[in-house]
Simulated scan of single mutants.
Amino acid sequence: MESSFPALGLAAWAQLQAKAGCTLCWGAQGTASSHQPLLELFLQDHHSLGMFTVSPCSGSIGPWGQQEIRVECLAGQEGTCEEQLSIDITGRDPKDNPLGIAFTLIAQSCLPAFIEDVTLIFEEYPICSSTNLEHKLQSVEGTGLYVRDEKRFIFSKVQVGQEAEAHFNIYNASCLPCNVVLSIKPLPGEEQSLINSIFKLHPLKMSVPGSSYAVATVTFIPPEEQNYTCIFRASLVIPKGCVEMKPQSLSFTISGKGQEPQLAVVCPSFPYGWSWLEADGMRAGHQPEVKLLKWCCVWRWQACEDSKRACNHWG
């Protein structure tokens, strides 16, 4: 028989059930109990082996009755623990499992943690270096991009007063669920209230399932045509009593600039001069005729002296 515990945090327990029609006595088989007399086990109310504690160690079961065996697991260091136990029934056939009915307990202990791989965190966005940043900013089509060597996410092409959203994935590196606290902080010397009105974060807390991920959303609302910067931080919540766990946090800079629409008027140019339309004020609903004027530069008149045909064409 074999029983596998799921990944454990500080403590966990499992319940085992045994059914028989005679006296039941279960002892331990392994390094921790191989030299322990069966009578001594019979007199104990519990037995500890590795990170497991089994109770009771012995008992009697009436006909068609059942006995609940409680197994507690107190996780210690990270890793997998496997222990071999045996169940011995008095008066049974000694040829059948002479060392007892084997029973295996397996448990895996681990600490919560999240992945710091930027290719997973910024899965939706291009990742570049500062050497080709200007080219990337001009060609990027989405909300923004991440600059690896600067640890900075940049919102791109956001109009003043408009909203732009960025999504960051927080991946859980262990099979245990973990709690994460999110925050946005201003740069040193800047006001927190001003940053909170420009960068909005949701959610502020999240529980990430084991071997899965959750999404943090940052909304950028630039009030003016200028640059804005803040610091994003995700901090892992350390469970109570977990003294061996080191604090873990993920942080990077978020920046963006408000943009105003701009219109550039470029006069059309032609190989042989300028052309334009000249019109007076017009009444709504009317379609006045406009005379097309042609004008040639001095250099064109000089060219006409050498080319009568061209001069006649433009004259």
Rank of each mutant, 00 (worst) to 15 (best):
S58V: 07
S58G: 08
S60A: 12
Q66D: 11
V71K: 06
V71S: 05
L74Q: 11
L74Y: 05
A75R: 04
E82F: 03
E83P: 01
Q84L: 15
L85D: 03
I87W: 11
I89Q: 05
I89K: 02
I89F: 15
P94D: 10
K95I: 04
K95C: 05
D96S: 09
D96F: 14
N97E: 13
P98T: 06
G100V: 06
G100H: 07
F103S: 07
F103A: 09
T104V: 13
A107K: 02
L111R: 01
A113N: 09
I115K: 11
D117A: 13
T119N: 13
S130N: 10
T131G: 03
T131V: 15
K136M: 13
K136A: 13
L137Q: 12
V140N: 07
E141V: 12
G142C: 07
T143Q: 07
G144L: 04
R148G: 00
E150V: 01
R152H: 03
F153S: 01
I154D: 04
I154C: 09
I154K: 05
S156N: 12
V160R: 02
G161R: 01
G161P: 01
E163H: 01
A166G: 10
F168A: 06
N169L: 12
N169S: 12
N169M: 08
I170E: 06
N172E: 05
